[in-house]
Nucleic acid binder design. Structure first.
Lengths: 218, 218
DNA sequence: CAAAAAAGTGAGTGATTACTCACTTTTAAC
DNA sequence: GTTAAAAGTGAGTAATCACTCACTTTTTTG
């Protein structure tokens, strides 16, 4: 996909009529619930109280309707994530790497919970669409990887983290974080995340072993 | 779904004609690649060099064809997993919890790599089908959760693991392991897993912090 | 307010879908 | 070797699919 199409899809979002908003709202619900392939445009039209023609007038094809849901989400959420990592999560109070990760998790849980349905659409469709993967990868690297890399290196310098290659650490961290979100928001859709679970996740994951020395002294 | 249907689908697998084997083989490939909803029975028939009638003669509906792929995989693989956890992974040489988890990861990577395509079908479809989730959950709990729980408790006794509730530890472990498999085998389909990555995963994940005391003494 | 542009409609279209059934071919049992 | 059962066929079917287009309604603009 060209950058032009990407931008035009974003731009199209700016001035939406009530009917368009309703189409998107219903499409998100249905795609999140039943999946893109199992949802017909006729069903979207019916539930959005709109004629099928209106959907195609605005979005051209069913595929472009999907993209006009997913792309703005990606384009908006990734830079926001990058900003918040530094401004809200990594403050003066963040002493340890675990504290940083727990803060990051809390911050993102709040975000993904607000955008739960779009996130579900995103995860369910990115599995199938190679184009979508390729489209999103550079945005992801640019906004997220770079920022987190810096944090990892910062904590390595502070002696908080073992001196493994940053790239590998990044893959490990994304694996662990990604799975937290996907399992809780997509796989177990009605699972409610307790504050305790969030607080304990990284302390256990990053440091689950009982410290032998502190054990001896207690 | 009833236990009867479950068993009958398993039993049907026992005596398969060449055509049936070919149907399953092609169906797995197509479902893994394009997804269940995006694959037509006509396409399966064509590639398997079989008439569409043959598919429906044996499997009745497209849905039952999917189930006759997924259910035997689940029913075979889960008990195998449970057995192997104890016989192959948890040997006398397994001193630490990290060693156990790394052994488990290695063992399962080998397994999922052999069954890569079925695993992809499984992951891609379980997201959509609530029935499938409910069907599989008890098998999962019976075969996996119980076994891993015992290992966790064993290592807690040995003083290797912090004394968090076993249930919560299990959820954390499954999150981390599951994501490893899903990200490597489903999301990044052509990602090749290096031995180094596997060896370093749990040592980093479970103990990523630089030990402050050993640092001082070095 | 008139003209142009944009938004919205819904019946209609050809392609594709999962599935059926009357039929033929192959296999197995005695 | 006959027969019955099982396996396999492929043309046919109704339903559904994404999408179109000639048209009406609403909004915007000068």
């Amino acid at each position: 996909m060209t950058q032009d199409l990407f931008d035009s899809l974003i731009a199209a979002q700016k001035t939406k009529t009530e009917k368009q908003k309703k189409i998107i709202e219903i499409a998100i619900k249905l795609f999140a619930d039943k999946g893109f392939a199992n949802t017909s445009t006729a069903e979207i039209a019916k539930l959005a109280k709109v004629s099928e023609g209106t959907i195609f007038k605005h979005y051209g094809t069913k595929d472009k309707l999907l993209l006009s849901i997913i792309l703005p989400f990606v384009k908006d959420s990734l830079p926001t994530m990058a900003t918040e990592v530094f401004s809200e999560v990594l403050t003066e109070d963040t002493k340890t790497f675990e504290q940083f990760l727990t803060g990051f998790l809390k911050n993102r849980i709040e975000f993904f919970d607000r955008n739960k349905e779009i996130f579900r659409v995103f995860v369910k469709e990115i599995i199938y669409k190679d184009e979508l993967k390729k489209e999103i990868a550079p945005h992801f690297i640019k906004n997220i990887s770079l920022q987190i890399s810096r944090v990892v290196e910062e904590f390595k310098l502070r002696g908080e983290l073992k001196d493994k290659p940053t790239d590998q650490v990044l893959i490990y961290l994304m694996t662990v974080c990604g799975s937290f979100f996907v399992s809780r928001f997509v796989l177990f859709e009605n699972y409610s995340i307790s504050n305790e679970e969030v607080e304990n996740f990284f302390p256990f994951v990053m440091d689950g072993r009982r410290n032998p020395l502190s054990e001896v002294s207690s």
